[in-house]
Design a protein around this nucleic acid. Structure first.
Lengths: 153, 153
DNA sequence: AATGAAATCATGAAGGC
DNA sequence: GCCTTCATGATTTCATT
């Protein structure tokens, strides 16, 4: 992981369709070398996959909410994970520190559908309460920053 | 937006490197037709971009937190947006309903760096308080679901 | 680890159904 | 709107430094 690898990652985050010739030029390498470095980044798992960013509203997922779940048992185990993963509207699920136990990110078509999903979430074993944060507007959602140093490493 | 378009989106979310011939086969179309449909999906903005999914830990962003911001003024305007966007560790920023005003998603290398970012966030004009939720473990983060119907549309 | 060249394969455009 | 064809250009491998 040197500066060139980071520059390649940033360039691919911005546009993963560009040719290796263009990528190489952007970081000062030949197409072949750029290709080889990217191959290794994939192999190591630094690049998890190449994917597309879909506009949620265009596919009927214009409503976004974050929900904190209270639980009366430890929910950090596979059964809980699987129960949440089975709900397609849940995009992310995290175990958190603090008064709640889990935080999930939910996208639905309408507030009514959000309510329907909350009902399913409430029925997951161990859940004793929910606190819902509805998003009114998204300022931005962007790829994680790979270039700026977080000084203390 | 028919079922074939949704299937194309799902296939591209899973792997945007596959050839149009493979994509077409997956949805029952020729390579040329698949290509044409994907071109239109891009043109319409349904596909916002083709990108890579980077492992946060591999680039020194292994610490994840969600932070709710209290404010004493309306923060839904461009200056606030720009002030937050200028902090590279902030990956998402949303205006929310409820007692807080904003929700941001932050990734840093260490808890110490998280503290440093929180300090910067606190210095954004209008911010009067923060409540931080530290993620202990991520169950999953996945592309938004484009296939399962959200029945009421 | 990077380069340049060569073979394979995918892309993107055009014409016909 | 989909299919087939074709020229162009990108990917990927390999020999070389």
């Amino acid at each position: 992981m040197d500066e060139i690898d980071r520059a390649l990652l940033a360039a691919l985050q911005a546009d993963a369709t560009q040719a290796y010739a263009a990528l190489g030029k952007a970081v000062g390498l030949s197409a072949g070398s750029a290709h080889e470095r990217v191959r290794k980044l994939r192999e190591r798992g630094t690049i998890r996959r190449t994917t597309i960013d879909v506009d949620p509203a265009a596919v009927g997922r214009g409503v976004l909410a974050f929900v904190m779940l209270q639980a009366n048992v430890w929910m950090g185990d596979p059964p809980t994970r699987d129960a949440l993963a089975a709900i397609p509207e849940i995009q992310e699920a995290h175990i958190i520190a603090g008064s709640a136990s889990l935080l999930v990110k939910i996208r639905t078509s309408t507030p009514e559908q959000l309510q329907a999903v909350l009902r399913r979430v409430f029925d997951v074993d161990g859940v004793t309460g929910t606190q819902t944060i509805v998003v009114l507007e998204t300022f931005f959602e962007r790829p994680l920053n790979v270039t700026d140093p977080d000084s203390d490493r």
